[in-house]
């Protein structure tokens, strides 16, 4: 259980002055994840918003050892660093305890980086991979990804006269990672800082790979007011669109259960990417999304032994 009072005293791993959009939630994700670590960390980031907004030569916002290699290979790059750590420790060149954290957006994780992630998890490297999932290729200008929810508008799945946004389902990456049978998998959001920090601490404590999927509201891509990112993350959880849960050695546990399950509509209506659904002829699409949220929520409750 972390205390804000203590966290506030720790030096920030990410300085201010970076160039993230106003109202963006990824800096909170990065800061919360890294503040959770009590040992030094080495960070690798996939190409994406977090990489371009926090470095531009000769400047860097990172106060920890940090590397960017390419888009699809944050997991494999970090696995090489972790292997180097083990080799140098074995030789007695290095005696420090160091932890290894990768950050990748949903494009770099769900899609182009899925193979590298899967390989790194299978090989059992002791590293934490954090996906900051903002549900589209936001860095290149809001193109659809495997993480984009059904019926969301993106520039490559626009809502038009005959097609209402992305018609395919969202890939459930957390479940794909669970199938790798690694020691620790979880979902969280920056709105639930204590949930996220506790999960990071659990993840870093396991002697093996761990993965946390963090929903990160994107002001530009989802299109909402600059002060609404945290509220949208909270609503995603309270509507049960993005449940907070963890899977520890294959055992599912819900880490937060909304007192009152809010209708998905409340989350949708605050985002312009779903605006086209709020017409009389598209009303049934919202009902369809609600049914899908309900189905997946019930399925998760069963896995958690709560149904």
């Amino acid at each position: 259980m972390a205390r804000l009072r203590d966290l506030a005293k720790k030096p920030s791993p990410l300085t201010s002055g970076h160039r993230a959009c106003s109202g963006c939630a990824f800096p909170q994700v990065a800061r919360q994840v890294l503040l959770a670590a009590d040992t030094p960390v080495v960070v690798v980031i996939a190409t994406g918003c977090m990489e371009v907004a926090t470095t531009i030569f000769p400047y860097t916002a990172w106060q920890v050892p940090w590397m960017h290699c390419a888009f699809e290979n944050a997991a494999s790059t970090l696995s090489g660093i972790e292997a180097a750590y083990r080799a140098l420790k074995k030789r007695g060149v290095l005696d420090k305890d160091i932890r290894f954290v990768a950050f990748g957006g949903d494009g770099g994780t769900y899609d182009i980086g899925l193979q590298a992630l899967s390989g790194a998890l299978e090989r059992g490297h002791r590293l934490l991979y954090v996906c900051y999932d903002n549900q589209a290729y936001m860095n290149t200008g809001i193109q659809r990804s495997g993480a984009t929810p059904t019926y969301a508008y993106t520039t490559t799945s626009p809502a038009g006269k005959v097609i209402p946004g992305k018609t395919q389902k969202r890939k459930d990456l957390t479940e794909i990672v669970v199938a790798h049978d690694i020691p620790y998998v979880a979902q969280s959001t920056p709105a639930h800082w204590n949930d996220l920090i506790t999960k990071v601490q659990k993840a870093l404590a396991v002697d093996g790979p761990s993965f946390i999927n963090v929903l990160q509201p994107c002001r530009l891509g989802w299109t909402f007011e600059a002060d609404m990112a945290i509220e949208l993350a909270r609503l995603a959880v309270d509507t049960c669109f993005w449940p907070l849960y963890e899977v520890v050695n294959g055992e599912y546990r819900l880490t937060y259960r909304p007192k009152e399950k809010k209708p998905i509509e409340e989350w949708l209506k605050l985002q312009r990417r779903f605006r086209h659904l709020f017409t009389p002829e598209n009303r049934h699409l919202i009902d369809e999304l609600q049914a899908e949220v309900d189905r997946k929520w019930e399925r998760l409750l069963k896995k958690c032994g709560l149904a």
Binding site: F57, M67, H68, L88, I98
Partner: peptide, 14 residues
């Protein structure tokens, strides 16, 4: 990178 006392940034946007 493993010299954690002297953090470096590798692969910055350029």
């Amino acid at each position: 990178l493993l010299d954690v006392e002297h953090p470096i940034t590798v692969g910055a946007l350029d």
